[in-house]
Write a protein that binds this DNA or RNA. Sequence first.
DNA 1: ATGGTAGACCTTCTA
Length: 259
Amino acid sequence: MRIATWNVNSVNARLETVLKWFEAAQPDVACLQEIKCIDEKFPNDAFERLGYNVVVHGQKTYNGVALLSKSPMEDVRRGLPDPGEDEQARYLEAIISGPTPVRVASIYLPNGNPVDTDKYPYKLRWMDRLTRHARDLLALEEPLVLTGDYNVIPEARDAAFPANWEGDALFRPETRQAFRALKYLGFTDAYLAGDGAPEAYTFWDYQVGAWQRNNGIRIDHALLSPQAADVLSGVSIHREVRSWEKPSDHVPFVIQLDL
DNA sequence: ATGGTAGACCTTCTA
């Protein structure tokens, strides 16, 4: 089973490109982020024609996440527990049915910039809520994949020019510490387990020729429970998609589980 | 050098 994550930066503005990739890559499950539309404006028909079931947690203008799966989905959760005043659509979880069910979450973790505004504490609180929920899910001892745009550069090796990111919300010590706190609950970083080659970025900014200079960062991740890590058989970053016409600033990241 | 690009949507916010 191949499970993909992709921040598409507007599913409707990018639909032609997104469908082109789906037809070529044929993921069994896909987690999309930044769909930038409400549920009613998600292009369900286009994905259903490709054989996918569709679950959407959308929002007007900003954010929004979706799950696409060739097999039916159950136990859908929209949003993290303890939302409080949080109305941003950044978390969507479901069980992918099959001989061995796997629980998959599509995550769009807050960016957090600028760090001297309430956006940064919001990011850290959101990470804390994710970590508490992840702890509960791990206790179920089932195959679990938490994947998406984490907006976290875990280590200096995950940026082409790490010095450029000093002080940025994606690379601040508190951010990296919070990511480690999540991971060290017992997760495996699928990319590091499956390949681990440096200069394996998933995001290149639209600005100042970041793609042309390979000024990238690795911020799209898949964290696996032990039951998922045991069956991990491959990972791939679809880097070439960044060179297509009208690209997202992120590229798809795909993991393969032998389920 | 505080720039540059992209998307939603209505003038500016987010990334």
